[in-house]
Design a protein around this nucleic acid. Sequence first.
DNA 1: GTCTATAACATGATAGAC
DNA 2: GTCTATCATGTTATAGAC
Lengths: 200, 200
Amino acid sequence: MTGTKDRILAAGSELFRHGGYSGTGVKQIVEKAGAPFGSLYHFFPGGKEQLGEQVLRTSGMEYLQLVDLFLTPAPDLISGIEAYFAAGVNVLLETDYVEGCPIATVALEVATTNEVLRKATADVFTAWIDAGTEKLAIFGLPPEAARTLTISLINSLEGAFVLSRSMRSTEPMAVAGASVVDVARRLLAELGQDGKKQAA
Amino acid sequence: MTGTKDRILAAGSELFRHGGYSGTGVKQIVEKAGAPFGSLYHFFPGGKEQLGEQVLRTSGMEYLQLVDLFLTPAPDLISGIEAYFAAGVNVLLETDYVEGCPIATVALEVATTNEVLRKATADVFTAWIDAGTEKLAIFGLPPEAARTLTISLINSLEGAFVLSRSMRSTEPMAVAGASVVDVARRLLAELGQDGKKQAA
DNA sequence: GTCTATAACATGATAGAC
DNA sequence: GTCTATCATGTTATAGAC
């Protein structure tokens, strides 16, 4: 049984990342959640801003699990990266370019206009970078190289979502994947490693 | 002498890219432009949407000139890319992470909510890609390689603006520059070229 | 805790004097 | 073409019955 609060969070997450923070009204959110209007201010006394912050932090942590889903099963670093961006292409096609990053739309909107929400987006990105850095160790990458590659991967993914969703083309996402593979290959060559999954 | 219409466009450009399309009110725009409220609907009978479209197309073409500013003077491809992302770092620092891409904020906001504005952002990105592809020919890159590298560059730049502005750190922008250099080096090696500027 | 009515305000847009 | 007053609507938030 899904609680009212969770339904409000889920509805907010979808509406915020599609229409933006300013572009989404609180009535729209409770309506989509099938929740009474008063419940919003019962569960989120801080109003729209508190809801926005919770939505960012919650969906940010949910998407963190996607890293495991595609990188962990891969036999080596390169095919892990390829699987990750192939999944990005699939998301674009399967949702008709509707879905992308759950954070970026709001992140750009609030970067200079709302410090509470900006901090929430920054915390999510920081968590993603730290988790990716840790995860890439399974392919033998030392911390510094793993961090650089993770940031490069997120950079390219975020930028590709902007271009691909705007242009309604998978080309930018495909190019992004190939680019990150280039970066990974250069790193591996520099380290003299093969990028195969390490024994536990 | 700056016309009223131009001042409205300039004010709209700044406010839209900072606060987003939904987050910016038309009254806010005319106030910043020092223009009478009625002038907005005189010059833009289509209202906020027509203004938004004009702002996107106009500032998109203005930023196109920045490609020339940093890539053209470079003696070779690699140092051109480095100069470009160094400029990105400077913009972040000099504006205290306020300025970024004039299109991306609105692009994510309207990608699935306003087809007129989405098309405008797509046309701008397409123009950037085409212009970059053409410009990179001065370093000897054939069209296909030039297009791939241009998309990779814009991907990384856009994503780095998202992360850097959110986290208030230049690290993502610096990583982005190094990553695109990796991609360029791989392309040059594959083509057997040196990336030096070609004679006219 | 659920739900509704409504307050207080901001929004995009328009009418019409000048 | 400039400028102001105003409309209708949508916004966030609150009060208070149940």
